[in-house]
Amino acid sequence: MGAVTGYLYLSALLFSLGVLGVLVGRNTIVILMCVELMLNAVNIAFEALSVHFQTLDGQIAVFFVMSVAAAEVAVGLAIVITLFRNYLSVETHDAVTLRG
């Protein structure tokens, strides 16, 4: 492994920060940003591993992840907007109609 290990630790750290942000976040926009952070942490891991193995698989994966992340955020923001229209808030603790 060698040089790649450092990058993998970095990616694990960033991923954990993203997870933490999603779990404690109250604002949906902040949660969205944390999900992006998680996906980009994975991108670092893919890049590092791709260089380590001297294959292009990981590099190609990063392109797919970036484009999927963009689509996901577009839909996510649209959902946040419909939520805001119905609740006049983007905080998660205000949207509590469904229970049981």
Binding site: V22, I79, V80, T82, N86, A95
Partner: peptide, 10 residues
């Protein structure tokens, strides 16, 4: 519906 969508999305 919008609340369900938000929960599912996140």
């Amino acid at each position: 519906s919008s609340e369900g969508a938000l929960k599912y999305f996140i």
